[in-house]
């Protein structure tokens, strides 16, 4: 925006803003603080903002990645480290696959127009409405008995790609529509085949759309719990699954669990700060454009 003139507001307005920001960010800040506390500090009666921050909880959670001996760890529980690697692999691979497949489909739907936009937006909506809980029973049954890919990372990736495709196709469509067809025609005149046109001309032009789609897909795959819980075995568990497993125990180690929660929250937080504009575009595209 070019105009730099801002309206002056009264102090109550700013007070409201501050209150809202505190409410929105407060719980996250509290989680961060707890994750930096020793259990003695967490349980002590005098809760305060004054405490010695320590990285011990993070060291406990990430013990198998440490390059030094942490003196307070007697026994290294590798569950979380393994889950972190699983989560990263599963989310990254499923994001890349979803984007490639979804992009091609969106392009075909826009440029070769053999299905109306209505069909696509209706099916997107239809898929958006299917709760993961509804997929739970059939996916568990099919993956276990028919495909026999239960307990593998590939199995989890397959569900995530399928779950995310409708939304990705739909959001990318709205970006591809805006690419001037003359550009593609010019490339074709110069002798480019359909795949060259797509990869060399169209893809670079829809980068913002790709960014929005990538963030949404990654976030769904990174945060998803229910299906991962049903499909994963000991070796393919993702971070949300390990977190839930460790809180059902009677005695909760708040410091460590908050550290793992924080580690799970960090990637989405980074995305939010880096690409909030794209996220908001992705979010509003759903409602404002219908």
């Amino acid at each position: 925006m070019a105009d730099k003139s801002y309206d002056k507001q009264n102090p109550a307005y700013y007070a409201l803003l501050v209150a809202l920001v505190v409410m929105a960010v407060g719980p996250i800040a509290m989680m961060l603080m707890t994750s930096l506390k020793l259990n003695v500090d967490i349980m002590s009666d005098t809760s305060s903002l004054l405490f010695m921050p320590t990285l011990r909880n993070y060291e406990t959670a990430l013990c198998d990645f440490l390059w030094y001996e942490a003196p307070h760890i007697d026994y290294c529980d590798k569950t979380f480290g393994r889950a972190l690697i699983n989560s990263l692999t599963i989310s990254l691979i499923s994001t890349v696959l979803t984007l490639v497949i979804g992009c091609m489909a969106a392009y075909a739907l826009v440029r070769f127009r053999f299905m109306g936009r209505d069909t696509v937006s209706l099916s997107t909506l239809a898929m958006r409405m299917v709760p993961p809980a509804v997929l739970l029973v059939p996916v568990f049954g099919i993956w276990t008995f028919q495909f026999q890919i239960d307990g593998t990372r590939a199995g989890i990736i397959l569900v995530y790609v399928a779950m995310n495709l409708p939304f990705v196709i739909w959001i990318l469509q709205s970006f591809i529509v805006q690419v001037p067809i003359q550009l593609e025609e010019a490339a074709r005149m110069d002798g480019a085949g359909p795949f060259q046109v797509f990869f060399l001309v169209v893809l670079p032009l829809i980068k913002p759309g790709l960014a929005a789609a990538a963030i949404f897909t990654f976030r769904v795959a990174w945060n998803e719990f229910l299906l991962a819980n049903a499909l994963a075995d000991r070796n393919s568990r993702t971070v949300p699954v390990t977190i839930v497993n460790s809180i059902t125990e009677f005695d909760i180690d708040w410091g460590v669990i908050m550290a793992t929660g924080m580690l799970l929250a960090i990637p989405p937080i980074i995305f939010t700060f880096v690409a909030s504009r794209q996220i908001i575009t992705g979010m509003t595209a759903g409602a404002v454009k219908g």
Partner: peptide, 12 residues
């Protein structure tokens, strides 16, 4: 800041 709560995992 306001979209942060929606972005982090529901589990968290």
């Amino acid at each position: 800041l306001f979209i942060l709560p929606m972005m982090i995992a529901p589990i968290v």
